[in-house]
Design a protein around this nucleic acid. Structure first.
Length: 272
DNA sequence: CGAACGACCTGCAGGC
DNA sequence: TGCCTGCAGGTCGTTC
């Protein structure tokens, strides 16, 4: 479920239930995720207060006084806030219990992660090399222009590289490139400055709107109906192969880039 | 150093 | 009905 807007939505959804709360117990039901869930979590988190909760890229970070819990949802992770007693389901991996409710992580494909660090989060190996947050000023046309020079990797692949900018996954990379009218195969270094401006703006706009529409799902997280997704979302290219471009009616084309579905309009996103 | 690619998993849809 | 293939919103580690 994760692209940045979904993770941000989860973060906002769980925040009222976590922030300032004391962990009552931790349960590891199925430790095998991308990396094993550290077995010592139950003992070191018991009775500790969640002092902070934030997002970096697609990582959720639970800050404690003596360290931080890093959580990634991978491809299929779902984090629910539960209050009543819910029977354990297939692929439930991890649970953080507070006094009034608990968080339960379900992850079918096990690409997600639950990790612990007792050092500053910013220097954690998975965090330290991450690029800027797409919604902050640090991600701007100057940065992108500079960064892409001499790079021949297709711009779409480049945009999805977390070392360049975090949080732009396959769906929104497709959408942003359509918005900026840039062909996904364009070598990154061939993008003009003005195209960088458009692309940066497109990324910001699309992610912001997705977060806004994702906001309406917060209740479902809280209630556990948890249907995370892209419903309220009007995707213009992703998943619309062969359907008419909303701009010019040309049937959209799909190709594979790095094994990922890449959909675009050959008219609106003409090759350079 | 950058770039390409395989690897990690399960479940589902579609073709035969 | 069942088997097979390919595909799914991610990203790390290895190799070149």
């Amino acid at each position: 479920m994760p692209e940045l807007p979904e993770v941000e939505t989860v973060k906002r959804g769980i925040e009222p239930y976590c922030l300032g709360k004391k962990v009552q117990s931790v349960h590891i039901y199925h430790p095998r995720l991308r990396w094993p869930i550290p077995p010592f979590l139950p003992e070191i988190l018991k009775n500790k207060e969640i002092k902070g909760l934030w997002r970096r890229g697609k990582y959720l970070i639970f800050q404690f006084e003596h360290g931080a819990l890093l959580l990634h949802l991978g491809m299929s992770g779902i984090l629910r806030v539960l209050t009543a007693n819910h029977p354990l389901q297939k692929h439930d991996h991890f649970e953080l219990r507070m006094d009034e409710c608990y968080l339960r992580l379900n992850d079918t494909r096990r690409f997600g992660a639950v990790l612990w660090t007792d050092k500053a989060v910013e220097i954690h190996p998975l965090i330290v090399d991450l690029g800027p947050e797409p919604l902050l000023e640090a991600f701007n046309a100057d940065y992108l222009f500079q960064k892409t020079r001499k790079r021949l990797t297709p711009i779409k692949t480049y945009l999805m590289n977390a070392k360049v900018v975090v949080g732009v996954g396959n769906i929104y990379a497709n959408e942003a490139l359509f918005d900026a009218r840039i062909h996904p195969l364009t070598p990154a270094g061939h993008i003009s400055f003005s195209q960088c401006e458009q692309l940066v703006q497109a990324v910001k706009t699309i992610l912001t709107q997705a977060i806004l529409s994702g906001g309406s799902t917060i209740r479902s997280f809280a209630n556990s109906e948890g249907k995370p997704g892209y419903f309220a979302q009007t995707l213009r290219v992703y998943g619309r192969k062969d359907q008419p471009c909303k701009q010019c009616k040309t049937p959209l084309k799909e190709i594979r880039l790095q094994g990922r579905s890449t959909v675009f309009c050959i008219t609106c996103q003409a090759e350079v």
